[in-house]
Design a protein around this nucleic acid. Structure first.
Length: 426
RNA sequence: GGGGAGAUAGCCAAGUGGCCAACGGCAACAGACUGUAAAUCUGUCCUCUUCGGAGUUCGAAGGUUCGAAUCCUUCUCUCCCCA
């Protein structure tokens, strides 16, 4: 069954701004729309999930989504939301990032349905042959500097300076829209609210150059309830790439969402229906401690980004690490299960010999592993009650570890704080 | 071109000769409480440390002094006002 795209985005809280006439256009028939992705990293992060979901809803509403990877725009650097000039990425890095992101995108959209299959394009394909002179004649001529200067992304930078390169960015992205409009019948560009200016430039170009019509729609920037940035955990950005953020950590990220945030997230990042979500919320309200909301959210998104078995493994590890049984359940864990359960947990391999005469805990944490960057810091954390071995808190700074602290004669579970685990394998 | 203000740790921001590794706030990290939530309270928060200390900071470089973030000189950058 096809959904109404705009309605869908509205109730999910994913609609920030729409150009007039967009809804009418979407109601008339199948529309081709696109969203651009910036290849600044070799993986997409959870922040990009908003745009991926937007495309997915777009497709489910019967429209044709195009994901654009910015091989060309990435070479220039989008000044939107940046207070400083960005460093240019090398071409190799860019290509690598592009390939990685493309693979991730392919996972979420349906590229095989006949009528509105998704598509991926790279704007480098139409920019590589475009000479500078051609560009300033064919594109630059249609937009005034006055117009370009009025953009927030430019205005905010006038005091501190901005290179011509970044200044031109909006033209490059604007031309993408024009190109896709002209050659692929794209009528709509979508993106985060910070992209509004760039999107409108494209529309303006289409209008000035060909008198054509085009439309735009943006999604709100997601912030956490406490006003901090979304998409970061203590250990940094949360990535979709399992090598950069393990499925276990990914699952934990969502599970740790605050109640307030979880309500926002479940609408944006899952495909649950309105009724389903409201039911889950009721359940949560009745029994807050069960955290069904976070669990449903984390489950759905972990399975879609990774897999069912990754999800199960994450659950299993989470239950052992955070469950009631604590020390006992650890002891009971079978040898063969040990590694698979802790697959997503940071691991260190050491020689068992170092335990023969005992080793100071502090040395293990710093010299033998990189769990702590310095002895002073490790000591402070131990004194503060922030270190546990096999779920048992250690508060003695001079604590010695021996083979008696091994689980299954092989493993030692080191805990830094409440949520950071490392497994040392001997 | 003329006049004025300023540059302090991740950010904001005190400090204007020794008591300054530098008040305070935010962010971050940890502990308690709890529901792996929020709020609250507590601790840590330049680097290293055998926890006794040691080393390196206050835009940059020189200088004065027993002693400088604080005084002097030069330089760099930012902001404001006048033209």
């Amino acid at each position: 069954m096809k959904t109404n795209f705009i309605e869908e985005l509205k109730w999910r809280g994913m609609l920030h701004d729409v150009m007039p006439g967009t809804e009418e256009l979407l109601n008339k028939g199948v529309v081709t729309g696109y969203i651009g992705f910036d290849p600044t990293a070799d993986s997409l992060g959870v922040g990009n999930m908003v745009q991926i979901m937007t495309l997915l809803h777009f497709q489910q509403a019967g429209h044709k989504p195009i994901a654009l990877v910015g091989g060309a725009t990435g070479m220039v650097g989008d000044p939107s939301g940046k207070s400083l000039e960005r460093n240019l990425l090398s071409e190799e890095t860019l290509n690598h990032n592009l390939n990685c992101q493309q693979k991730q995108l392919e996972k979420f959209l349906d590229f095989n349905t006949l009528d509105n299959a998704a598509q991926i394009v790279n704007n480098y394909d139409w920019f590589k042959q475009f000479s500078f002179l051609e560009f300033i004649r064919d594109v630059g001529k249609y937009l005034t500097v006055n117009y370009m200067l009025a953009k927030d992304s430019v205005k905010n930078r006038l005091e501190n300076g901005m290179s011509f390169t970044e200044f031109s960015y909006q033209l490059v992205q604007g031309y993408d829209f024009y190109y896709l409009w002209k050659n692929k019948g794209v009528m709509l560009q979508m993106g985060g609210s910070d992209q509004w200016g760039n999107i409108v430039t494209g529309s303006e170009l289409i209008r000035k150059k060909e008198g054509g019509e085009s439309f735009a729609l943006t999604t709100p920037l997601i912030k956490k309830a406490d006003g901090t940035k979304f998409g970061k955990s203590e250990s940094g950005n949360v990535w979709l790439d399992r090598n950069k953020t393990s499925p276990y950590k990914f699952y934990q990220f969502w599970l740790n969402a605050s109640d307030e945030d979880a309500k926002t997230y479940i609408r944006i990042f899952t495909l649950f229906t309105r009724e389903q979500i409201e039911a889950i919320e009721l359940e949560q309200a009745a029994a807050k401690h069960t955290r069904v909301l976070q669990k449903a959210l984390a489950k759905d998104i972990t399975i879609r980004v990774h897999s069912e078995s990754d999800y199960n493994a994450a659950i299993e590890a989470s239950e052992i690490l955070f469950g009631k049984g604590t020390a006992e359940s650890l002891q009971k864990l079978l040898e063969e299960d040990f590694l698979s359960v802790f697959e997503g947990v940071e691991q260190y391999k050491l020689l068992i010999e170092i335990l023969n005469d005992g080793i100071a805990l502090v040395d293990l944490l710093t010299d033998k592993t990189t769990i702590f960057p310095s002895k002073g810091e490790a000591r402070k954390m131990i004194q503060g009650g922030g270190v546990s071995i096999n779920k048992q808190k250690i508060e003695d700074v001079n604590f010695q570890l021996t083979t008696s602290h091994l689980l299954n004669n092989k493993y030692m579970l080191v805990q830094k704080g409440k949520k950071n685990y490392s497994l040392v394998v001997f």
